[in-house]
Computed example of a mutant assay.
Amino acid sequence: MRIAFTKMHGLGNDFVVLDGRTQALPPMTAPLAAALADRQTGIGCDQLILIEPSDSADFRMRIFNADGGEVEACGNATRAIGVLHGVPARIETLGGLLSATPIAGGASVEMGKPRFEWDRIPLAYAMDTLTMPVGWEDLDAPAAVNVGNPHVIFFVPDCHAVDLARLGPLIEYDPLFPDRVNVNVATIRARDAIDLRVWERGVGETRACGTGACATAIGAMRRGLVDRRVTVTLAGGSLAIAWREDDKIVMTGPATESFRGTFDPADFGVPA
């Protein structure tokens, strides 16, 4: 039994996509997802994406990080799936219902409304999420936003000078975050421009993170640091983020298909 996959990426944040609407898929487990994501012995990706039928949307999207853990949302993957689908679609995710519209070279995604309540992030105990009274060495007073998954954002003079490889996992696994957390370090360059690096839970530092760009833009907007339309620049490229008057976030940016192939689940110790 061979399973067809599509390899895609959005700004270098890459995905292996399995379409369960057109073929039978083996039960997805954390070990299998991690094995497929492994860049030395698997196909290699930041996230494994499953497309499945849905009773409430055009289809359902499930997201597994490189460590095999299933997560709620991925903005770059939503753009990629929008491009793959080819026409506007409503997409069911664990983080809520999203809408994707293909455009030239990518897609525009309606990411829903941000959440700021401490127990919706979630945090282990109540505190202000606009300026959290906590810190880790030189990183302190972050904002927290849930945009389908949890993020903390640190605004710093130079995000490229932060030792994110060391501080990222320290913050990700802090007991303050019962579901772990995505860690963003951002520098405001102008009222409409932000530089960003992201430590993604279960992945590590990534070339791009769509939900991280959304969360960072919203955090900066709430603090009055930027206007309600900004360009967020990451290592892999730039995303346009808008926070509309109806409270919904719209993310626009590129996504593309890299290649297609097949694999045998038995090669990864999983019977077909």
Rank of each mutant, 00 (worst) to 15 (best):
Arg79Ser: 01
Arg79Met: 05
Arg79Cys: 11
Arg79Ile: 06
Ala80Lys: 09
Ile81Arg: 11
Ile81Gln: 03
Gly82Asp: 01
Gly82Arg: 07
Gly82Lys: 06
Leu84Tyr: 07
Leu84Arg: 13
His85Asp: 04
Gly86Met: 10
Val87Glu: 15
Pro88Ile: 14
Arg90Tyr: 15
Arg90Cys: 14
Arg90Val: 15
Ile91Met: 09
Ile91Lys: 08
Ile91His: 10
Glu92Trp: 13
Glu92Pro: 00
Thr93Leu: 04
Thr93Cys: 01
Thr93Phe: 04
Leu94Arg: 13
Leu94Lys: 11
Leu94Ala: 08
Gly95Ala: 03
Gly95Cys: 10
Gly96Trp: 04
Leu97Ala: 14
Leu97Ser: 15
Leu98Ser: 02
Leu98Val: 12
Ser99Thr: 15
Ser99Trp: 06
Thr101Ser: 10
Pro102Ala: 10
Pro102Lys: 01
Ile103Phe: 03
Ile103Asp: 05
Gly105Ala: 13
Gly105Val: 02
Gly105Asn: 13
Gly106Gln: 01
Gly106Thr: 04
Gly106Cys: 09
Gly106Ala: 05
Ala107Tyr: 00
Ala107Ser: 06
Ala107Asn: 07
Val109Ile: 06
Val109Arg: 02
Met111Ala: 00
Met111Arg: 00
Gly112Glu: 12
Gly112Asp: 05
Lys113Asp: 08
Pro114Lys: 11
Pro114Gln: 14
Pro114Asp: 12
Phe116Gln: 08
Phe116Cys: 11
Phe116Glu: 07
Glu117Val: 14
Glu117Met: 13
Glu117Ile: 15
Glu117Thr: 15
Glu117Arg: 14
Glu117Ala: 15
Trp118Glu: 07
Asp119Gly: 11
Asp119Ile: 06
Asp119Pro: 05
